[in-house]
């Protein structure tokens, strides 16, 4: 039962990933479509982050002391300032953990 679910989920996710990579699918992308898809990284990745930041434990948290919010802002600042991915990740995660313990 669980294995059936795991394999079925695997197929579902793979279909999403592969569908438009199939050349037999008759489809040509216009320049407008390409421009639109150019926003996929900022658009989709932001959407995934939104609820994690503002809805921790499924509760709306708009407080400026929300550790997720402060951690995310720190990550933005660090990334723009240093331009180094791993450094920004480690420092912002460290700050998040400190804030989380400190503000709890």
């Amino acid at each position: 039962m669980i294995w059936l679910l795991i394999v079925a989920m695997g197929i579902a996710v793979f279909l999403n990933r592969y569908a438009f990579l199939e050349p037999r699918l008759p489809l040509r992308l216009s320049s407008n479509a390409r421009q639109f898809l150019g926003f996929a990284v900022p658009g989709m990745l932001t959407a995934i982050c939104g609820p994690i930041i503002f809805l921790p434990e499924h509760q709306l948290n708009l407080s400026p002391l929300n550790p997720y919010l402060l951690g995310a802002l720190a990550a933005v600042a660090l990334m723009l300032w240093t331009g180094r991915v791993l450094l920004s990740l480690l420092l912002s995660m460290g700050l998040f953990l400190i804030l989380r313990t400190g503000l709890a």
Binding site: T46, A47, L55
Partner: peptide
């Protein structure tokens, strides 16, 4: 969040991308 911020932040260099991020953030919540 930290990972995706690191991927997004350097890309927000113009108004359309900033608008995209803000709308997406608000709507996702």
């Amino acid at each position: 969040v930290a990972t995706f911020v690191a991927l997004i932040a350097p890309r927000v260099r113009d108004v359309p991308t900033a608008v995209c991020v803000l709308v997406s953030l608000f709507c996702s919540v």
